[in-house]
Design a protein around this nucleic acid. Structure first.
Lengths: 153, 153
DNA sequence: CTTACTGCAAAGGATTTGCAGACTA
DNA sequence: TAGTCTGCAAATCCTTTGCAGTAAG
């Protein structure tokens, strides 16, 4: 619909769920998520969204509500980091994603593939019907690994 | 040390870390964890510990402090459930443990082995140094699976 | 014009902390 | 006795909610 595309002078995102209003707050949050290279927590999204909107002030609670609404529509994925229980969000990707969590800089790096693609997890648990799984790797990313190596901190 | 064994009329647990005092609160928490078949959260441990001590009243904050102290000594493992972000504790087992989380009854069932025993996770992430990993399976346990099958809820 | 969406402030739940007294070792 | 623990209450952190006003469609 052409009319929709006029809102805020930016194109209506094709993935944006019908039934949700395209407000400036939602636009900012959506853009932040779209441009994020890694999962972000609510507070980070909140700050980035304000910055993305040119310094306009939003309410943190609104960001939480937006994230929840997006999640219910399947637009975003809410992830709990196993290491510290922190909650992060990403736009939903095709299939599922696993992350490598850097213990140095705390970043969550998406893995390109799932190691279980060819493994039958069902064998592991008798009587348990497996419908999904989640895997996280811990360690050090290239930069942090290098830092520890060279500088021997 | 024989002297240690006399405390509270119960044997000093061999795994109990040196450097931690063997108080009645710690004893109760330790016993609860030892007898638990599954990971428990702080609140649950708190109530069970009081019950285990014959109804004596403890402070929840004390239980948190005990859990933290135990964790620092490597006696217990703190786990975040990926499904809902809840935090649970277990006595540390040999090696690491993975859990199968039942989406029906919410129980966390320990898995007997690690599917990665023979897999090199390093291959998955270029430049990332893997030092550990965590895996969770989701699905339905025998009972919940049966319920859904037979009763067709 | 209708009703979803937002901001604000207050409520909540889980966990942590400061402090003074209690209790192991 | 010395230094750790504990209980209590207050403080945090993160997230949710109620309400009345604002704006999208």
């Amino acid at each position: 619909m052409a009319a929709r595309m006029a809102a805020y002078g930016e194109e209506w995102e094709s993935e944006y769920p019908r039934g949700l209003k395209w407000t400036k707050q939602r636009k900012s949050v959506y853009r932040v998520l779209k441009e994020a290279a890694e999962p972000l927590n609510a507070s980070r999204i909140y700050h980035l969204a304000e910055k993305s909107a040119g310094g306009e002030e939003y309410a943190l609670s609104t960001v939480y509500r937006i994230l929840t609404a997006f999640e219910e529509k399947g637009l975003v994925e809410r992830n709990v980091c196993l290491e510290d229980g922190s909650v992060v969000y990403t736009l939903t990707r095709d299939g599922h994603t696993h992350y490598a969590v850097c213990l140095g800089c705390r970043r969550m790096i998406p893995m390109q593939s799932c190691p279980f693609a060819h493994i039958h997890l069902e064998k592991e648990t008798e009587g348990f019907i497996v419908t999904g799984h989640r895997l996280e790797l811990y360690g050090y990313c290239r930069e942090c690994g290098r830092k520890m190596d060279g500088l021997e901190d």
